[in-house]
Each structure stands twice: as C-alpha cells, then as structure tokens.
Simulated scan of single mutants.
Amino acid sequence: MNSKTQWGIIGFLVLLNCLTVAYFLTNSQGSVKQVATNAVLDSVTEESVGKIGDTVITRQQWLIELENRYGKQTLEDMINEKVIKQMADKYDIQISKEAIDREVTMIKSMYNPLDHEEINDEQWREQIEMSLLLEELVTKDAVISDEELQQFFEKNKDLYDIPTTYHLSHIVVKDQEEANQVIKELENGSSFSALAMERSLDVFSANQGGELGFVSEESGYVPEQYIEIASELDVDKWSEPIKVEEGYAIINLKEVIQGVTYGFDEVKDQIRRQIAIDQVQGALSTQSFWEEAGVSWFYGKE
C-alpha cells in the first residue's frame, strides 16, 4: 500500500470519527426539540400511537421509551456542539471557507457511499467545520516546528495531489436491447436510481440506486472506459450503452471534482493538526472542555 493510500485512510478515519459525531448532532436536534414539546403537550393525555389487538401504546409510553433509549446520548451530542462553538469563540478559533472547501475535496476524492451513508453537501460542510473546530481546540497548545511540517509535506506530497474525480452511478443489464430500453425510460423521465434498483445486475450497487461513489483513474474498481466516458459527459447526464464484462452498462454523472495540487502553505495548518492529533492519546473528545464551559445537565456528573 503506497503512502498516499495509507495517510488517506488514516486521515479519513480520523475525520470520519468526527463526522459521525457531527452527523448525529445535525440530525438529532430538531427531533429532540419536537419530542420535548410533544411531551409537555401530551403529558396529561393518553393519545394512542400504536395498537396491537386490544393493547395500546400511548404517546407518553413511546416518549418515555425514546428518552430511555436515546435521551442521554442525544443530549450529550447537543451539549458537545454548544461546547465546541463556545470554546471556539473563547479562543478565537475560526475555520475559513477555503479550509472547508479543501477538506470537502480531499474527502470526496476518497469517499465511497457503498461503505458509508451518503450525505449532502450542506451537511458535509457543517460537519467538517465542526470537526475542524474540535481538532483546533484539542491541538491549540501543540507546538510543531516548520521543519517538521515541511518534512511531513515532502514525504506525503502525493496525498495533496487530487486527481479529477467523478461521482458516478450505473445500471448494468444483460444485453444492448435492454440497455436501449433503459435509456428510453430515462428519456421519458424515469428515475436513474429507481431503474438501477429495479433492473441493475450489479447487486452491490443496485440497492444504493446504482451508486458508485467518487471515482478516478486511480480508483481501480470501475472499468477504465467509465472514466473516459465520464470526462465527456455533462453533469446529470447519462451515457450511451457501454459494453462491459457482465453485459451493458449506462453510467450517470452526478458531480465532477476538478483535479488540484495543494501547496505547502495551503495545507500547513492541516498538517499541524494531523501531527498533533497523532500525538493525542485516545479519540478526539469534547468532554475535556465541559468543566471550562460550565456544563451541567440532566444526567448529572459522569
């Protein structure tokens, strides 16, 4: 495994850990507020939310069960988000749009939705900003020489050389006649994702609507002609039938990330964080800032 792949995996796993936390932060807040509101409104009622024969599950029973299962973790996630923002303001830590753009580009170039849940761009940017703020907070006291930063950059320079990358999905069918039929259905307004789930022979991607993720010439897990044809497609367009080993394929281009090579000055802060994080024992955590932020909560002290 080359150094680019190794560091790419390491960097992605570190950030994915933060993204996972941030993902639950993003998706839990609205539901928690609604649950809390409903709990107040329905505290004196016995509204039914489910019935099995003569057995009724009331809204109050349901809300109590939700709190027992998810309440503590959801509240902790909400607190962590507030703590990160408060501590970032205290230490005047900000993440530039350019830094977020760069992280988005680098992560997408390694991202495969077959292994991870697909996230839209707005969610990605919010999660990346939150994770970078946490990284900056955890490593704010780290002192790393310019010489060490430069050495890391030179040793891993290919990590910052991002090839042009295509976000693709595909439909694989047994023969050209069926492929032509698929194209007719697409031209008549059918959903590419729905057709992939219904018709595609590629069982690994069919359940994901034909999703292949972000691929480049270096990816190695899609046919070479996919990249060649994708480079000629417009975004949101599909190809003519392509002869492949399993039969014929139609590919759909969702997004293009233009290739870019980042210089040392552009990634210097990212390298500093990476080296410092490698020196931190254990996973990145917001817990160490709770006391400083004056956190108190329903569940008391750990």
Rank of each mutant, 00 (worst) to 15 (best):
Q6D: 14
I9V: 10
L13E: 08
V14P: 00
L16S: 06
C18H: 14
T26N: 11
Q29P: 00
V32S: 07
S43W: 05
V44G: 08
E46Y: 04
V49R: 11
I52S: 12
G53V: 06
D54R: 08
R59V: 04
I64G: 07
E65T: 11
L66S: 04
D77Q: 10
D77K: 13
I79L: 09
K82C: 06
Y91N: 13
Y91M: 14
Y91K: 12
A99Y: 14
R102N: 15
S109P: 00
P113H: 06
D115N: 08
N120T: 12
M130D: 04
E135N: 08
E136H: 07
E136Y: 05
A142R: 08
E148K: 13
L149D: 11
F153S: 02
E154T: 11
D158K: 11
H170N: 10
V172I: 15
K174L: 08
D175L: 04
E178P: 00
V182Y: 02
L186Q: 06
S193Q: 10
S193P: 05
E198F: 07
S200C: 12
D202M: 03
F204A: 14
A206M: 10
F214L: 06
V222Y: 01
I227D: 00
I229E: 00
E232K: 15
S239E: 01
E240N: 04
E255H: 13
I257S: 10
Q258S: 09
E266P: 00
K268S: 04
K268D: 02
Q274F: 13
V280R: 05
Q281N: 12
A283D: 13
Q287W: 07
G294A: 09
Y299E: 02
G300H: 09
E302V: 15
